[in-house]
Design a protein around this nucleic acid. Sequence first.
DNA 1: CATGAATGAGAATTCATTCAT
DNA 2: AATGAATGAATTCTCATTCAT
Lengths: 209, 209, 209, 209
Amino acid sequence: MTLLDTPRRRAPEARPTQILDAAFHEFGERGLAGARLDDIAKRAQVAKGTIYLYFPNKEALFREMVHTTMVTALAVAEAEASKAGFLTGTAEAQLRRLGEGWWTFLRTERVQVLQRLVSLELGQFPDLMQFYADEVITRGRRLVSGIIARGVERGEFRNVDPQLAARMFSSIWMSHSTWCARREFFKTLGSDEQVLVEMLDFYLYALRP
Amino acid sequence: MTLLDTPRRRAPEARPTQILDAAFHEFGERGLAGARLDDIAKRAQVAKGTIYLYFPNKEALFREMVHTTMVTALAVAEAEASKAGFLTGTAEAQLRRLGEGWWTFLRTERVQVLQRLVSLELGQFPDLMQFYADEVITRGRRLVSGIIARGVERGEFRNVDPQLAARMFSSIWMSHSTWCARREFFKTLGSDEQVLVEMLDFYLYALRP
Amino acid sequence: MTLLDTPRRRAPEARPTQILDAAFHEFGERGLAGARLDDIAKRAQVAKGTIYLYFPNKEALFREMVHTTMVTALAVAEAEASKAGFLTGTAEAQLRRLGEGWWTFLRTERVQVLQRLVSLELGQFPDLMQFYADEVITRGRRLVSGIIARGVERGEFRNVDPQLAARMFSSIWMSHSTWCARREFFKTLGSDEQVLVEMLDFYLYALRP
Amino acid sequence: MTLLDTPRRRAPEARPTQILDAAFHEFGERGLAGARLDDIAKRAQVAKGTIYLYFPNKEALFREMVHTTMVTALAVAEAEASKAGFLTGTAEAQLRRLGEGWWTFLRTERVQVLQRLVSLELGQFPDLMQFYADEVITRGRRLVSGIIARGVERGEFRNVDPQLAARMFSSIWMSHSTWCARREFFKTLGSDEQVLVEMLDFYLYALRP
DNA sequence: CATGAATGAGAATTCATTCAT
DNA sequence: AATGAATGAATTCTCATTCAT
């Protein structure tokens, strides 16, 4: 019904959304096995049995939650990207704007949790993993590589493989976002804004002709 | 039959290691909550009760396993680093050698598993998280920043903050190692060797004066 | 089939009582460590897990059971005492009536079991022990000492310390009740009624002026 | 080999005695099911396996321990009784001496523990229970009833059934001994010596012609 | 004889799932 | 549709007993 409906999901009325939201938090905190339906129900302000009205079992709820989260994240990313209006100005300016957008996006709780779940739990769900790899990671990189290709064409950047450069870009951004999310353990990091500037400067230097 | 490997008393002092090893695999695969003591026992070729002779409970076993794994990884890393003999040759040569060492190290199962556990499970164990941040991540970076500082001094590299550059280095290496470990989902990646070369070239370019 | 006694939801508020009742029997028979939750559940006609809906663990169930049993016993004792209408007639008549009431009360399964549990298991639960000492033993004696004080005042009894006499009273009654409960081992005992008469006669003789 | 050997027991060399001693404490504290062989071994300063060299299993150890304790208690009681030289002096004097002896005896840890075990655990061991009833309780009473019979004959005491009077005697002494052993819960009790005097006076008054 | 590490059956506890209301 | 008490299979944990040394 809504924009984001994919065949595998029911129409997200209020109740399911509430539950998926709670599931997102609990699974994000403790993983698939560690989260308790009881806690999810409590957080969703719903009786335990109600969950089973919408999802056949815990695993399905987990899958659905991950999928929904990915889809939502994707929509946000696309919005962010187009909002960046990346077809105007120099490639460098575009890249700076996109880097900023990514930075906001990656530090989002949604993405952070996704990151964690992907790393440990998604081994058991290859289809979700593939979806993540294709739709989130790879697609995300396309935006970057597009800009870089244009920069290379225009002679703004040195002659790098745009795919490769985009991969380098995302490696730097992703790692830093997780570190910043756990800032309490990495005391040497500057503020999120400083980190962004550092990444941009370092990265753009590597693209200079 | 002879004197080895009778059901009881196989190698008395090896027991904890045996168990920790099995724990590493099971926890690494399914996380703290998802792993079953039963499976750990089976893998360690030990009775369920035996585990409790050495660890008071599941959580303690998990903690100990993570800690031990980190310590071992650390030792390996240090050995690798010194083996690289990084005080000879140009800074670039040293960095290349170290980058190669890191690459081997990071693609190790031990480190990959650690990575996953850190990301999802270590939220509940801040002390382990801190230990990881300090001893593994931060300490590892010191090796890199040392070389870079020397390169900067010698005029081989541009005038970057070595700390910062080391952070960039590890962000690239770490992300790529996880992607390569899940190569089946990232079809566009070249071989591990190619990826290493790509990273080295890209990174060194960003340091050229 | 009709509206009663379907497997689930039998009498929602009765559950704790049902369980405590079963616990009383099992713990009373085999003690805290010896009783099995499984058997308690079976006797309560409840699934094992149901117990944990009402009590956090075995020990808590035990404590609660002991406490409840004591409180119930107390209520019964008070009722018995007031029913004896001990403010009418001679002190001797009152004492005879009360002695009879106590005799009935003490030979009750509830009290017998309590006795046993107190003696062996309550060393580990000083608060319950104290409760028993204060509320059951000491309070019980007050009833007796009141009557005796009145008997002394009226010159019916010799000049004894009522507290002390009440203590003697309860020592005789309590011991005999346990012996009668194990009559098979004490073949020389007469019937419960004879024993009562013997106690009353002996005791009252000791109070004659 | 020793005096107390009954057919069912092995000769008590040092080791078994050590173990029985430890068993006495642990079983006395936590009962048959609650005590752990591990703790018994530790207390006996013996390896866990060693226990099985002398006793086929936990239950047998328990039985043996109870039996031994009873036999020992009995021997002590007899000694105490004959030491009281109860065939000289008035019956009252003898009774006072015996009452004193019993008082000492009953407040012994050995007897206190026995008391507790009898009440809860000995339901499962009818033979031990019978042994206790016959040899400890009933036999003990014989000493008292003998003196009373003599007192009655001599006109010192009123014409009571000596058996019955002995039963009253033991009921008073036994109850008070357990209360005094848990003195912390019965704050109104005087010192052990006072309690003894109170019991003697009360009891002898009941025997006055 | 003595040891104590190892065992595994058995008991306590948890929690996903069901179902009467 | 929604509830949440009840279930029982699955899991953790305990401890009497064994046995290689």
